[in-house]
């Protein structure tokens, strides 16, 4: 029997999303970040990374279901898949978008200011996080959340 109920918002089943959506989005994100790294350094890399940062920003502020990647999933991928076996809380992948945005902004600053090493490393970390999500459904940002709370609060 569960004695302590969870009190965080968005955990109701009604607000659930298909967990394959964020996974699909993470796959696209990985591809885009690989393109950035292959183009880097230069204005082309910065431009593609800026687009990815914009996608992260939409996901972080308006929810993962509102990103262009989520739209692609709903329109082209989900109709071809069987119904999901279970729905997922959109809060964890939403938080992951915030973490992705952080890495993308730092990377972008690196490329724009000529600190190419910073740009490469930050984009590299964003790629690791996106790949973990795409391949293992593992949310690195979510995991770091408690550690960050432990250190700061």
């Amino acid at each position: 029997m569960s004695t302590i109920a969870q009190s965080h918002p968005g955990s109701t089943l009604a607000a659930g999303i298909d967990p394959r959506g964020p996974q699909f989005a993470a796959t696209l994100t990985s591809v885009v970040l690989i393109v950035v790294l292959l183009l880097a350094p230069g204005p082309a890399a910065a431009a593609v990374l800026a687009l990815q940062a914009a996608v992260f920003a939409v996901g972080a502020t308006r929810g993962v279901q509102r990103t262009p990647y989520a739209w692609l999933f709903r329109t082209f991928v989900r109709p071809r898949l069987a119904a999901p076996t279970e729905l997922e809380d959109p809060a964890p992948p939403g938080f992951a978008q915030t973490v992705g945005l952080g890495f993308a902004v730092v990377g972008l600053l690196g490329f724009v200011t000529g600190l190419d090493a910073l740009g490469l490393v930050a984009t590299g970390f964003a790629l690791v996080a996106a790949l973990l999500n795409a391949l293992f459904r593992f949310c690195l940002g979510c995991e770091l959340y408690l550690l960050a709370k432990r250190l700061t609060a």
Binding site: L39, T123, G124, L127
Partner: peptide, 13 residues
């Protein structure tokens, strides 16, 4: 260098 970062990121992940 970027390609090496890609390889390293994939290996790490």
């Amino acid at each position: 260098t970027g390609a090496w970062v890609v390889v390293a990121a994939i290996a790490l992940a």
